[in-house]
């Protein structure tokens, strides 16, 4: 199945990816955000906060946004 993955860490990429049935939010985080822990991110599925064991469904939109994003001057 295909889901839209948005990783707002660094470059902020958004892309559809193919994932196996039964993939959870935690699986997706480990696959997409290799460095970092889930509690350092706002994780949303279809724009809503979700538990980490939620199973993704076809066409879901999952986004990872770091809680700490350092500005500059």
């Amino acid at each position: 199945m295909k889901v839209l993955v948005i990783n707002n860490d660094g470059g902020g990429f958004a892309d559809y990816v193919e994932v196996p049935e039964g993939t959870t939010v935690r699986d997706m985080f480990q696959r997409e955000v290799r460095s970092g822990k889930p509690d350092g991110y706002l994780i949303r599925v279809n724009r809503q906060p979700v538990p980490s064991d939620q199973v993704l469904r076809e066409g879901d939109r999952i986004s990872f946004t770091p809680i700490k994003v350092e500005g500059a001057r």
Binding site: N8, G10, G11, G12, A14, V69, G71
Partner: peptide
């Protein structure tokens, strides 16, 4: 700062929720 690239990309792609959140 660190958010520059993600902000530009979110805006360019019309992802407003991501833009405002970042």
């Amino acid at each position: 700062g660190e958010g520059a690239a993600a902000i530009r990309r979110a805006l360019a792609e019309g992802r407003l929720l991501d833009f405002f959140t970042i």
